[in-house]
Design a protein around this nucleic acid. Sequence first.
RNA 1: GCCGGUGUAGCUCAGUGGUUAGAGCGACGGUCUCAUAAUCCGUAGGUCGUAGGUUCGACUCCUACCACCGGCACCA
Length: 658
Amino acid sequence: MKYYLTTPIYYVNAAPHIGHAYTTIAADTIRRLKRMQGYDVVLTTGTDEHGQKIERAAAAAGKSPKAFTDLISAEFKKQWSDLGLHIDRFQRTTNPSHAAVVRDLFERCLKNGHIYKGSYTGQYCVSDELYVNDAKPGDPCPDCGRPTETVTEENYYFRLSAFQDRLLELYETQPDFILPETRRNEVLAFVKGGLQDLSISRTTIKWGIPVPNEEKHVFYVWFDALSTYMSAVHDEKIHGESLWPADLHLIGKEIVRFHAIYWPAFLMAAGLPLPKRIFAHGWLLFENDKMSKSRGNIVRATPIQKVLGTDALRYFLMREVVFGQDGSFSYDALVGRYNSDLANGLGNLASRTLAMITQYREGVIPEGASNQQIAQVATVITETALEAYERFEFSKVLEAVWSLISAVDKYIVDNAPWKLAKNPDEQDRLNEVLYTAAEALRIATGLLWPILPESAAKIWAQLGCRKPLDDLRTAELNWGHLEGGQHLGIPSTIFPRADAKIAIPQMQELEVAEVARQLEILGKKPEPPAAKTSSDSAEPSLAKAITKDGFITIDDFGKVDLRVGLVKTAERVKGADKLLHLHVDLGEAEPRSIVAGLALAYKPEELVGRKVVVVANLAPRKLRGLESNGMIVAASREGDLPVLASFLEDVPVGARLK
RNA sequence: GCCGGUGUAGCUCAGUGGUUAGAGCGACGGUCUCAUAAUCCGUAGGUCGUAGGUUCGACUCCUACCACCGGCACCA
């Protein structure tokens, strides 16, 4: 039986970080689990390399798109190999074999009448390659906040609207198509709300896969990217069984819609088999904050690996985070888990068990009976762990295995083999204790292999087991498979205790170096995180006004009429979380009516009587039916609340800023 | 605004209509000595978000409210 699973293909506008690693580590774990269950497993990952954003990033780095994406794609590939992840296929959207599959998917949909040509005039966000319906010229992008550009484009459209019923039927008949259930409910709500046709081509972009028989069109990112799941295993078979459809798409929760709605609809339209399951995991937070570029709190995997080892990272991610929910990363918690669970728990049990067999039995695992209670415990726990694995409940798997570890620790103390060793009449009992401990350790190690492949292999070898863990099958986790008479391997410490005071600064230093290295590869100069936002976000749409040197002229600035205003009234706008309706005195005949998105940051009463900076000559517009004549100036960073510009000294109402 | 989720010991979480609400980690005390100053044993007195209600009895059921999170809408 084959089992085909995928990670998302990662967008090469950023270098790999712990979030990418989280998904891919989980995929590697599932891959090993399925392997242990006897499947012929294939795991695919890759890189998503097309789009205007990449074109621009490449240009900024002084490289051709191809050279740029080659470089970053190689970074991802290297990251997985550094982390010891077993990747079977690494697919790139720039791979020629991929383009053929995309065109084929398109032509099938076209032939079946699910694609038509239409045209779109409106606002477009270059950064997200997103059409922003209902936006006006100059409006910012709903997603990233960067200014949108006005475009008129002829596009190919996918008739997504026609698939509402079939999608709902899919979710109905296959309740576990989307997991966890909260994600399924969200998708259901979204689809029930009605689906709009989807534009699947772009003429504004050159860097992409050309649409068949078209000069100007290239495929839109999702039509292109999702197809890698098929192109990576195109027409491949294992023992006569086709790899497609995928058994599992492992994704992050931010891309559920594309995988659970668009992708099955594309495949239905093309008359191709659908993937069997989509599992969306949660986000990794940094000390309960969202990790983001603008906060500068993104963590990389490599520094952790270098200081504590890959398995420490894998263990932490799988144990601390409930798979499917958001979880939080911190260096303290990482080192805490490492020391208390890995060093004191698993590592120490291996160490004491092997040491005793070495000292008392010259490194040979004794023959004879084993303790029935421990055997029973091991059997039950193995069952529990395998069931939890089946549901991808990795933290429960680990809890179960650790309860076996503590049962064995207790058993050892209760039986005090060091006392038995001194008594010639107790040699049989000593054999029993040593064998029991070793066999329990073997089973725990086998169960842990999918999550801790490196350390499991070490313990396995130290136990003297020869068979590669990759060939271990779940049936061999039954009690009693350990051979008496087997010679131990060479002992070594698996998880040396870490001193948090040393390890954490070490990781943080390596982190700084890694960030610098990645920035260099991306062709960006290292700069302090706080300064990054402005250069990042401003460039696209100001391009026309900005001169070659990146400066505007005094005349350009003069066009903006900034005035000091006094807030006279402020109230919340009904039905909008973020909006406040203000009346602001600019020294004119009447206070101006201005609607501002400040409600999350300020209470209405905090604003009344406050002096603010107003863009006085902004074109009027209506928001929620309220006239807005101007804009309140506030400092804002992506993901943060706005902070009003204000004055330390008193200034008269109506004064111009220049 | 609509829909959904969460709120339990310092931290991470489990939990059931009913005697004194649990686990792991951390902390403190003790113990063994095979072991990575590890193990093992003992100790932790937390208004089970707030306020009501149903009930003989609620942490567990209902209602309202608060906080946080997510989706959608709105908006930026």
